[in-house]
Simulated scan of single mutants.
Amino acid sequence: MTSHEIVHGTVAAGFEDVRRAFADIAAGEPGLGAQLAVRHHGRPVVDLWTGPEVTGDSLLALYSSGKGAAHLVVALLVQDGTLELDRRVAHYWPEFAAAGKGEITLRDLLAHRAGLIGVPGGFSTAELADDRLLARRLAGQAPYWRPGSGYGYHAFVIGALTGEVVRRATGRSLQEVYDERVRVPYRLDFFLGLPEDEEPRYLPVQPLAPEQRGAAGPPAPDSLLGIAFNLNAARPTDLVEFANDRHVRALGPASSGSVGNARGLAKLYAAAIGPVDGRPALLEPATLTAFTRPHTPGVDLVTGERDHFLLGFEALGARYPGLGADAFGHSGAVGAQSFADPGSGIAYSYTRRRFTAGGGGAPENRLLIDAVMRAAAASDGRP
Results as ranks from 00 to 15, higher is better:
D222C: 04
I227P: 00
E164Y: 03
W145A: 12
R201T: 13
R167D: 13
A135V: 05
L194S: 10
S255C: 02
N261P: 08
D189L: 01
A139Q: 02
L194K: 07
T237M: 11
L192E: 13
G152E: 05
A233I: 09
Q141R: 13
Q206V: 10
R235M: 07
Y202P: 06
P195K: 02
P204T: 00
A139I: 07
F242E: 07
L203T: 09
G257F: 06
N230V: 08
D189A: 03
P210S: 02
A155G: 08
A139F: 05
A234V: 12
G260D: 08
R146S: 12
L225K: 03
R235L: 12
S258T: 15
V248Y: 08
P207W: 03
Y186Q: 05
Q212F: 12
N244G: 00
G252T: 05
G150L: 04
R263W: 06
V177P: 00
R167H: 13
A139T: 12
Y153G: 14
L138Q: 01
D222I: 13
V157H: 14
L188Q: 11
V259Q: 11
P200A: 12
R187A: 13
D222R: 09
T170N: 04
R213V: 09
G140Y: 01
R235P: 00
N244P: 10
E127N: 02
V259G: 04
G226N: 05
D238T: 02
R132E: 09
F123M: 04
R213M: 09
